[in-house]
């Protein structure tokens, strides 16, 4: 079984981004970039399926600027077999990403498509759902457990009140939650090996997808700052202030 994993290069999760003074965008020049943490979990799961003898090939794909190659190399170092880079400097919104991924999947014909549940930059949480809709496949979002069972995949989903289990007909699209697994630490020899693994380049024109943005970013602003709080000396003062000043109980 072939597994296709989509990964995204984003601002590292430890970086607190700043809004530009002219409010045109967030300032991400010179900040550390990494693989989206949810996508690392997706890659890890695909590699584990391969190690368990359930997947035969793990292909990673990303879309975006030249530097996204680094993200693909990271995935290859984690254990993916080969990579596809759809290189573009254009802005890609989730709908365009879903269409491009569909185009790639149509060529690759994977049985399982794994994505992170959301990217920590746009926080959209849309791409997997849109990809499965466009491909007319089952979707298993926010998965915390994945088990292959014949021509189905059984998943546990994290939902608001608890957990839900579903059986999806393969091929299927799954978006992964934080709790699915703990991604492995990459060792130096794996990084060296990853440099030799195949990395194929594709263009948007080749895939024939309309990527024109549907939403226009008008501005980006700082959220309202909270007024400065105070430190209290002890529990008695805290309870007094909550009761008499803030009047919350």
């Amino acid at each position: 079984m072939k597994v296709l994993v989509a990964v995204k290069r984003v601002v590292d999760y430890n970086v607190k981004v700043r809004v530009k003074a002219d409010e045109s965008d967030v300032d991400i020049g010179n900040v550390k970039m990494s693989m989206n943490p949810f996508d690392e979990i997706a890659v890890e799961e695909a590699v584990r399926l391969k190690e368990a003898g359930k997947a035969t090939e793990v292909v990673v794909v990303t879309l975006g600027v030249k530097q996204c190659e680094e993200t693909l190399r990271t995935a290859l170092a984690m254990g993916a077999d080969r990579a596809i880079h759809v290189e573009t400097d254009e802005e890609l919104q989730p709908l365009a990403v879903a269409k491009l991924l569909k185009a790639v999947a149509t060529i690759e014909q994977p049985q399982l498509l794994l994505l992170g549940k959301q990217a920590i930059d746009d926080d959209a949480n849309q791409t997997a759902q849109m990809l499965s809709a466009l491909m007319q496949l089952a979707q298993g979002t926010f998965a915390s457990k994945i088990e292959l069972a014949g021509d189905e995949v059984l998943i546990t989903r994290e939902i608001d009140g608890g957990q839900e289990r579903l059986a999806l007909t393969l091929p299927a699209v799954i978006s992964v939650d934080l709790r699915l697994n703990e991604p492995r630490y990459i060792k130096l020899p794996n990084i060296m090996q990853a440099k030799k693994k195949p990395l194929e380049k594709k263009t948007i024109a080749e895939l024939g997808v309309d990527i024109s943005p549907r939403l226009i970013q008008l501005k980006v602003t700082e959220p309202a700052a909270r007024s400065a709080g105070m430190m209290v000396e002890n529990v008695t003062e805290l309870v007094d202030r909550l009761h008499n000043e803030a009047k919350v109980f």
């Binding site: 919104q93 709908l95 949480n125 759902q129 849109m130 809709a133 466009l134 939902i159 943005p213 939403l215």
Partner: peptide
């Protein structure tokens, strides 16, 4: 924007060829 809404709405959006706005 609950787990129900986040699961469903983008699927609807793609079928309508629309870009949704989250949250």
């Amino acid at each position: 924007a609950t787990s129900f809404g986040k699961n469903l709405l983008p699927r609807v959006a793609a079928l309508l060829d629309c870009a949704p706005v989250s949250d």
